[in-house]
């Protein structure tokens, strides 16, 4: 049996606090270990790798070249090509994906008959993988068995080999695949708009159109910014469709060499981890930039609202 008088209360509390803290660290540890090994360490390693040039033949030691390699990669025509394609791709996918999602969300945002069915349909593409969307659209666009040629869209060389059409084709399937998420996010944003505010605007005599543009959309803007970031990051990370449908063998490859594909290519084929690290950091900066931009926009809007 423990007896109270033997240990003064202050000591007890500190030992209890130590035990609590130890338990806290223990519980956080598993996740932290995974993050440490597979997120933070490899992320940080990019900064070191970027400074070393990997020789083209395995077995040779890599050479410290400082920022030389960074400049070299960022100025290379390959990177600029890839960056250009990626940005172009973002421009094709993001506005379309968000606008269509918003449109469908607004249309389905009423308590009407059969609305649940429409909602499931509109959200459905969220469960499709890049591989699924690539196969589905690859088939539709196939010059032999596809439907697009039959519908009259049959450029030569075929769409996915075509330097003009390959990127838009990938963009279309990406918009489709992103639509589900876009719809879900927009719908959630719409249901978060308080009904009383809309009713107040209607009572004040605003037309439905005015209510939508002057009340709903401003109130929805945090959601739209959020969607913007999600969509942009999604577009930046696109890889699977290119890998499955284009690949090097395609004549259009140089025009569809999206950044992530370029990174993987540099790792696996060129085996120059230094260059791959530079590309990775470039991708990180793009992602970070978009996120910070969103934070700033939201902040400004909040100030404006207050």
């Amino acid at each position: 049996m423990r007896r109270g008088r033997e240990s003064p209360p202050a000591r007890t509390r500190s030992s209890r606090a130590v035990r609590e803290a130890a338990l806290g660290y223990l519980l956080v540890l598993p996740a932290l270990a995974v993050f440490g090994v597979f997120v933070f360490y490899p992320f940080a390693a990019n900064f070191r790798l970027a400074l070393y040039q990997t020789p083209p033949y395995p077995g040779l030691p890599s050479r410290y070249v400082g920022l030389h390699q960074v400049g070299q990669v960022l100025a290379s025509s390959g990177f600029l090509q890839s960056l250009g394609s990626t940005l172009l791709f973002v421009v094709m996918v993001v506005p379309a994906g968000l606008l269509i999602g918003l449109l469908l969300a607004v249309a389905a945002h009423r308590r009407l008959r059969a609305m649940a069915v429409y909602r499931v349909i509109f959200s459905s593409t969220v469960v499709t993988s890049v591989a699924v969307s690539a196969l589905v659209f690859g088939t539709l666009m196939d010059p032999v068995v596809g439907l697009l040629p039959w519908l009259g869209l049959n450029p030569s060389p075929p769409i996915l080999q075509n330097t003009t059409w390959a990127l838009p084709a990938i963009a279309v399937m990406s918009v489709w695949q992103f639509l589900g998420l876009s719809f879900i996010v927009m719908s959630a944003g719409l249901s978060a708009v308080p009904e009383e505010v809309l009713e107040a605007a209607r009572v004040d005599g605003a037309s439905e159109r005015t209510v939508f543009w002057r009340v709903t959309v401003p109130l929805l803007s945090p959601t739209i910014f959020f969607g913007l970031v999600v969509a942009t990051i999604y577009a930046f990370q696109t890889f699977g469709q290119v890998d499955i449908l284009i690949g090097y063998s395609s004549a259009a490859f140089e025009h569809v060499n999206l950044l992530v594909y370029d990174i993987l290519d540099t790792i696996e084929v060129a085996k120059t981890s230094g260059q791959a690290a530079v590309l990775s950091l470039a991708l990180f900066c793009l992602t970070l930039g978009v996120t910070l931009l969103q934070l700033r926009l939201v902040e400004r809007r909040v100030h404006y609202a207050a």
């Binding site: 609590e20 803290a21 130890a22 806290g24 932290l32 997120v39 992320f43 992530v260 991708l283 992602t287």
Partner: peptide, 27 residues
């Protein structure tokens, strides 16, 4: 639970959201 550096650790957890997996591919 209460433990030292809890807030900092939580920020570390959230920071993982800022690092796309693709960026860590090399290593």
């Amino acid at each position: 639970l209460r433990f030292p550096f809890k807030r900092a650790l939580f920020v570390v957890f959230l920071a993982t959201l800022m690092i796309p997996f693709e960026v860590t591919l090399v290593t």
